[in-house]
Design a protein around this nucleic acid. Sequence first.
DNA 1: GGTGAACATTGACATTGGTCAAGCTTTCTG
DNA 2: CAGAAAGCTTGACCAATGTCAATGTTCACC
Lengths: 235, 235
Amino acid sequence: MQSQLHAQPIFRALKDDVVAGFAEYAAQKREKKGTILFSPETPNEKIYFVLSGWVKLFRETMSGDEAVTDVMTSGNFFGEIGLSGHDPMPYGAEVVEDADIISLPRFLLAEEIMRNSLFGMAVLQNMTRQRMQRDMEIEHRTVQSAPQRIGCFLLKFCRDAKTSPVRVHLPFDKTVVAHRLGMQPETFSRALAKLREETGLRVQGATVEIDNLQRLVDYTCSACSSSFPCEDKKL
Amino acid sequence: MQSQLHAQPIFRALKDDVVAGFAEYAAQKREKKGTILFSPETPNEKIYFVLSGWVKLFRETMSGDEAVTDVMTSGNFFGEIGLSGHDPMPYGAEVVEDADIISLPRFLLAEEIMRNSLFGMAVLQNMTRQRMQRDMEIEHRTVQSAPQRIGCFLLKFCRDAKTSPVRVHLPFDKTVVAHRLGMQPETFSRALAKLREETGLRVQGATVEIDNLQRLVDYTCSACSSSFPCEDKKL
DNA sequence: GGTGAACATTGACATTGGTCAAGCTTTCTG
DNA sequence: CAGAAAGCTTGACCAATGTCAATGTTCACC
């Protein structure tokens, strides 16, 4: 498990013995789709590293509406809000595709941040990147139409592809994608159909084939402040 | 100016000589409404502290639509993305009410973060709070109606008031409030009228009188994951 | 104190996305 | 393999918000 911890981007620059120290407190577990890792009601003092699978972060109102703020996969971690302390999180986390997850007490991170300012800087830059992504998300939900948001989502899985026929496989249920993009499943269904008409892509279950990448980019990125391929700026 | 820097929440715990060092590089200026402090096109290497007035942060698409992600006032600072380096910011900043602003080269912060991990932790927690606010914002724009978002906005200015007739003065133009809440000015106008009917508040120009605070809370906070008074959790 | 510019409101209408209900398809499970 | 459950799609309809254009109001400046 130590090697898996050390492979996490945020830990890559740490010394072996530090990671070994973490590993003693760490717990790895395979979690099934549907499992709630934590929710606003349950106090929580861990951070979670996703090794495989997908986990959605969401906020839920008293009337049952939910807003998905992010869906994370391998290389990502979450639960770092507050960094120490046992307060309930302001959001919940639910596994949406079977996942391998390592959990680690938060206080270990907090200690290492104080001890090692280079590490602290790495955590800060991670948080900064997350804030930027949220800003982006707010922009998308404000200025993009539903079909455009779907196009934007698909393009994230086309970053490397340069030759046009690209085949994308949706990594989790369409319902989750819909909420991740701030729309209802019904709207998602119709918006995907519209996107198909507009950009000539083909949909077969969870598989999407994009014959003309440029056409999708043109349709989607016209309503965005950045343009394809819009990766995070290196920090 | 050193005293004004030292009064900034993020600097409060720093030693005098450190702040004095910052002050040598700092520039204070009064900025008029309408001034663009920076935009995505202009490389920028400063962070900005608001002493008075209001500044909006926004993202703008190629077709001219804009999404306002935040509006900041005294005690807030912005431009810390990246923390060092001269890359263009991924967003712009525009003064929306005459403001006194101190600007400071970003590298000073980066240096102090590496030198003083307690300070680094403070910056990290500031960023964490901002990310949480963005999450909140995404939730609001997903599950609240336009009148509810306005109600929520008004309630932020009622945090201290416990006795019911409260008088709130909108601190910047309604157009800016509208965009801050992710809606068009016309929608804002109508939604405010609706809110008036629903909760019995009265509007006179930029002044809003709330006779029955509880009624506003009931109407607004039913579509939210937290409830009034929903301040940031202490970090 | 008058005038223009900026800000705000209103009406008419178009568009988007949400809701509810039904039916279909895929996947899981015994 | 059968049956059930979960996920997805579609239709009909409705509510919310955006758009465009006209008009009203406020405020700063001469």
